[in-house]
């Protein structure tokens, strides 16, 4: 499930995709520039750095943290983050004894405005089933060994609730600014398959 080499005889849907776009354009349903706009936005502008800013702010601003936990979608708007798949964002906070991890067992629900589009492993059937069945083992394989006393909570994202993990702030980061904190926060930590580390 790591590399997905495309066999040469694999019938690429490329032509069919092009044909559908051509028909939709011909019928005035979409303009190619609109597609370009969405693609460009999620390739270049929207990504985990947005979520990192939210986490950093929550670490330094207890009032913001409270609002974020109460209503994720409303709180992230304060930082200008909204858009498709940004509705019903539910922020779950890690503690010393609880570690949260997010999955979408049915498809690929993901908080786009905060993390961009999901990585391959998030959409992979193996991740989607194993993280529910054997989260501790899978997280271990992904490089995250949690102490036995830490409880793992698995959150299944859907159209109703898109979960986002507020990771623990690492020790020895007291001197860091909000921007410096944002720089150490990783996407994987905000999905819950990693923790934030310093250095």
């Amino acid at each position: 499930m790591t590399e997905n080499p495309r066999p040469t005889d694999y019938p690429s849907p490329q032509l069919r995709v092009e044909a559908l776009e051509a028909l939709l354009v011909e019928r005035g349903l979409v303009k190619p520039e609109m597609l370009d706009g969405f693609i460009n936005r999620y390739v270049n502008d929207v990504g985990p750095m947005n979520g990192a800013k939210v986490v950093a702010k929550a670490w330094v601003d207890p009032d913001f943290r409270k609002r974020l936990i109460e209503s994720g979608t409303e709180a992230i708007k304060e930082l200008g983050f909204e858009g498709p798949q940004g509705e019903h964002i539910v922020v779950v906070e890690n503690t010393a004894t609880v570690h949260n991890v997010v999955v979408c067992t049915l498809c690929s629900c993901y908080p786009w405005p905060l993390l961009g589009l999901p990585p391959d492993w998030y959409k992979d059937p193996a991740y989607r089933s194993r993280v529910v069945r054997e989260p501790r083992k899978l997280l271990g394989e992904m490089g995250l060994d949690l102490a036995d006393e830490v409880e793992i909570q698995v959150w299944d994202s859907s159209a109703e609730n898109r979960y986002f993990v507020l990771p623990n702030r690492p020790k020895r980061t007291e001197g860091l600014s909000e921007d410096e904190l944002a720089a150490i926060i990783t996407r994987d930590a905000m999905v819950g398959v990693a923790v934030v580390k310093v250095g």
Binding site: T2, D45, P48, M49, E141, M142, T186
Partner: peptide, 18 residues
């Protein structure tokens, strides 16, 4: 390409991750 192996902890290598 991502994998579920030990080295999957990614930082933010570029603006949008990857």
């Amino acid at each position: 390409v991502e994998n579920l192996g030990t080295d999957s902890i990614t930082s933010l290598p570029r603006l949008n991750g990857e």
